[in-house]
Amino acid sequence: MIRFEHVHKRLGGRVVLDDISFEIEAGETFVIVGASGAGKSVSLKHMVRLLTPDAGRVMVGDACVSQARGERLDHIRERFGFLFQSAALLQWLTVGDNVGLPLRMKTDLSDDEVDRQVRDRLAMVNLQDAFEKLPGELSGGMRKRVGLARAIITDPEIILYDEPTSGLDPVTSRTIDRLINRLRSELGVTSVVVTHDLHSALAIGSRIAMLHDGKMVEIATPDDFVRSRNEFIQGFLEAQYITTQGNWGQTPEAS
């Protein structure tokens, strides 16, 4: 579905992505983990051409997103939903207007229909009551959930999540995890999730990739991932008190 082919990227004078190649299959949940500043957000941004590789290319299906322009780029982007690390809500619009923005700008749906769909998505992230609020009146976690509602309003085939659970309380985090799983199982959405949270990664991922020093040092299923010999992965796991014992990779119950 999404294929990185020898992608190089320098940013701010240092190499962030160094000859990276991997492929994300349709319908899977691909999790990228790694230290802060490893280049996880940078890789996500390459998939929607917010960044362009210095060398190599990124393919989405048959289309080369790294060279697309104008209309064609818009068509590729319309297949994506993107939850930004900072949620990136428009500050002067109410939650309802923020979530409904893509529909109002890109479709001819009536205001009532837009309203209905917005309320539907807000219910999915447990934020029915926030419709009339401004982003400034919400907590960070709530904002992120609004961002998620906005990312899924157009029913995209691919959803990119940049740290969907960071800064959220554990209970809400698990709600988000369950939502990601539900979207995948019910709608067959392809998901790419960037996170530090290995618990979350192991719970939702069909495959997990470890980004370190500009390279994908490991791409493996959750079971293989926890047993990896790679010292960075070992360090990562230990830091979150995850042992190789136990059975990872099981989906939590959908609520």
């Binding site: 941004k45 929607v48 917010l50 818009d74 068509h75 982007r77 319309e78 994506f80 993107f82 930004f84 690390q85 900072s86 990136a88 809500l89 428009l90 500050q91 923005l101 893509p102 700008m105 890109k106 906005r150 157009t154």
Partner: peptide, 22 residues
């Protein structure tokens, strides 16, 4: 400017909403 640095412009672009138009 704030929208640019807080990725809101990027968000508009990803939603295929032209920031110039909007």
């Amino acid at each position: 400017g704030t929208m640019t640095v807080s990725e809101e412009i990027a968000a508009l672009e990803v939603m295929a909403i032209k920031p110039v138009r909007y």
